[in-house]
Amino acid sequence: MHPAFSVIFLTTLIGVGQGLFLALVTGESYAAVNLLPQQSSREFYAVGALLAMLFLIGGLIASIFHLGHPERGWRAATRWRTSWLSREVIVLPLMMGLVFLYGVVHFFDWHPDLFGVGTRNQLTLVIGAIGTVVAFALFVSTGMVYASIKFLQEWASPLTVVNYILLGGASGFTFATAFVAYNAPDLVTFYGTWAIIITFAALVGRVGSLFRNARIKRHSNIQSAIGVRHPRIQQKAMGFMGGSYNTREYHHGKGISALKSVRWTFLILTFVVPLLLLWIGIAGNGTILLAAFGVQYVGLLFERWFFLAQANHPQNLYYQTI
């Protein structure tokens, strides 16, 4: 497929936003049972929620550039019964709403004793729990947009959904590590450890999908495409010479060597370098941790480009020769 930059930025940015929100809620629930020191509502959680919100808004803006008619975008919420894209369109604003609510409650330091147990952060933990479910629902929706198209065999796998969760989580926790290095240094070890664990898990998942995709057995071939049972069929003309939507949308237009170099680039930038930088920076060096996130995000842009480009659409069987 031809990777659209709007889709690359949408999926990577909302992934960071969701991951960062999950990181905040994780920290807050650890603090609720006194495994971590309690943080300031306004300076820590509200600022963190604002940053998560900015990533989600960035993703939403990127998605607008993908649409031919963004002014009709509201219509995309109507077919949630059948379309994963429609479900994603519903869950993304829901996610943003919950992050906003989470941030606002923290900002005004509003901590009513909902359950009569006398601890702080009860309301925000409830919002956080609902937000966690919604964040995972959004990861699943985003992943299923790709995994549900059976014709694109590179995408049609549970690994697609798993990797969206792990890659989003890894980038979110890496960002959270850099964030706490400046804001709450005693949490760096906690977030840094989780960032390393999730980044490593994402590496395993992504390499797993690379191995799977290298061994795909194609369902369609030129014989079934035109319905002629002969071992030797060659296309002599696709019916036009100037190119069309069929030749532009379904192929990345780069050579096999470019694809391979992008694959190595994303493996190094998304996983190897951030893991090293996290390991070095976990001592509390904010600059190195911020660099870890920056490198990982650039790596994720390469990763998403590769993910989109690698999918081979069966319609390409009809467009082999001009």
Binding site: M1, H66, L67, G68, H69, P70, R72, G73, R75, A76, S83, L85, V145, I149, F151, L152, S220, Y245, N246, E249, Y250, H313, P314, Q315, N316, Y318, Y319
Partner: peptide
């Protein structure tokens, strides 16, 4: 809305 998702879901192009 011109999201092109349907064209991805058509194996025949």
């Amino acid at each position: 809305i011109g999201c092109k998702y349907c064209s991805w879901a058509c194996p025949y192009g």
